[in-house]
Design a protein around this nucleic acid. Structure first.
Lengths: 133, 133
DNA sequence: ATATCACGGACTCTTGATATCCTTAATAAA
DNA sequence: TTTATTAAGGATATCAAGAGTCCGTGATAT
């Protein structure tokens, strides 16, 4: 059980975008090189982030991506949800209504999500910025 | 991102075993039928549980499985760990030491594990027992 | 001795994630 | 207007891991 690579890339990309000067655009090319990915592949991920409203894209020459206006409200959970979709980690295999095992698993997952929802990308970005030599 | 079916089956199997009278053995046959699985497949899962010390097996005729003596201390996390192994949900794709993103993800996972560690199978088993008509 | 059971290796099958290729559309600059 | 640049997206190929089966071995009660 692992988070997808896509989620990994998405999180790093988002942090990078948040560090950019306001309204400045970054192309897939640059974002891909930074993480040693092919532009076409990262493009798919960026499209998902855009569909979720976390970033905005401008097509054409000098185009690129920038974080949407809700910048200071974007949490880890937002990014993860944009990539992984809306599924629960566990579904009872026998499906008798109200499975007690399922309940426990869901509660545990909720605890994780709650933590991921309270952490904002902007906090991490600041930390990363102050670390740069 | 999903827990494996094996984990699902393992949890249900463990709860069933805990409900058995002390020291009585249950064969793979019965356990498999209960969950509509092939005995051979469930056997692999049971072997993992045994290797982790959660259950004990007796070979030969009239053999089978029973919960190990630590019965009242087995948590959800124990079972999950026995099946899924010891891996973290997230590993930074860029691997610069002490990645801030990774730290957040690990903390969140820790919150989930903490919950799963505090829930014991025996509690669920009692609940399931009282529900039976 | 025989039937029953757990154990484990090797193998197949399926599925979803990963990744690439190629075409289309939009925009800036020349 | 033409050209270069860039995002969007469909189709396809690749790959790894999980799911599940088959078969042979060994242990034990009857």
């Amino acid at each position: 059980m692992k988070y997808s690579n896509a989620t990994n890339y998405a999180l790093h990309t988002m942090v990078h975008l948040i560090l950019q000067p306001r309204e400045s655009l970054v192309g897939v090319q640059e974002l891909a090189e930074m993480q040693h990915l092919s532009p076409t592949y990262l493009s798919k991920i960026l499209t998902k982030l855009a569909k979720a409203g976390l970033i905005e894209s401008t097509p054409g020459a000098k185009g690129g991506y920038k974080v949407s206006r809700t910048k200071h409200e974007i949490s880890f959970l937002d990014v993860i949800h944009a990539i992984e979709g809306d599924t629960s980690l566990f579904d009872c295999s026998i499906h008798h209504e109200g499975c007690a095992i399922e309940k426990v698993m869901w509660q545990a997952e909720e605890n994780m999500k709650s933590e991921l929802n309270s952490k904002l990308l902007i906090d991490i970005a600041k930390e990363a910025e102050s670390k740069q030599k």
